[in-house]
Structure formats: structure tokens, C-alpha cells
């Protein structure tokens, strides 16, 4: 992957993009309340989709498996599951009336 034409996007190395994504994910874990949960979901959805694209590129375009990319995909799947769990547990998808009735935002942040 690192030697392939897919190692960069518009001159930016995938390593830097990955670093930024993981840094945002780490921030989301410590950010309380809804903003933290939203950031966690956004970074994990983006990371998961991009990791799936890399898996496709490895299998069908480059025809070589990159262990770091596969490890990153596994981490992204777990991060996505955690992000969904945080959102569901906090009741962010319920209607505003229901949410007001059982507001547990602070506790689940």
C-alpha cells in the first residue's frame, strides 16, 4: 500500500490522514455530552468507510494485503460499534419530548 499509487491522496500521505482521524477519535472519547458522541460517530463512520475502500484496493487493485490497513479496519469497526452504543444509550435518536423526560446526557457523555 505504501508503495502504491493509493498511498497518497492529492499529495497527502494516508498515514497523516489516519493520524488525524485517530487523534479526533481520541478527543471524542474525552469530550463530554452530545458533541463527543457526534464526533466519535463521524470519525468512526469516515474511518470505517475509508478502511473498507482500502481493503477493496488491497484485494482487487494492488493484490497485496497491508497488515496495518487490516488492523486499522478492525479498530474502525470496534470504534463504530462503540460510537453507535454511546448514541443509543444516551437516547440521542429519541424524539425531543422523550429525551427531555429521561435526559441522561451528562451521565453518558
Amino acid at each position: 500500500m505504501q508503495n502504491s499509487e493509493y498511498a497518497q491522496i492529492a499529495g497527502v500521505s494516508l498515514s497523516y490522514l489516519g493520524f488525524i482521524t485517530y487523534a479526533l477519535m481520541l478527543i471524542s472519547a474525552f469530550l463530554p455530552g452530545f458533541p463527543g458522541r457526534l464526533l466519535g460517530l463521524v470519525t468512526s463512520v469516515g474511518g470505517l468507510l475509508f478502511s473498507l475502500w482500502l481493503l477493496y484496493a488491497e484485494l482487487f487493485l494492488i493484490k497485496a494485503i497491508c497488515p496495518w490497513c487490516v488492523a486499522s479496519l478492525v479498530v474502525m469497526v470496534l470504534a463504530f460499534a462503540v460510537a453507535i452504543w454511546r448514541i443509543v444509550k444516551a437516547g440521542d435518536l429519541r424524539s425531543d419530548d422523550q429525551a427531555k423526560a429521561t435526559d441522561a446526557d451528562g451521565a453518558t457523555g
Binding site: F34, L38, L41, V42, V45, G46, L49, F50, W53, I87, D92, L93, R94, S95, D96, Q98, A99
Partner: peptide, 19 residues
């Protein structure tokens, strides 16, 4: 859907477009 639900949906659509 709640205001947060709309925000989540919008953010997910934007991130999919970016990827």
C-alpha cells in the same frame, strides 16, 4: 425525529460525501 437525530443524520451524510 429529534433535533439531535437530524444533526447525526446530516453529519453522517456529510462524512460519507467527504470519504
Amino acid at each position: 425525529m429529534s433535533r439531535k437525530g437530524w444533526l447525526i443524520g446530516g453529519a453522517v451524510v456529510v462524512v460519507i460525501a467527504v470519504v
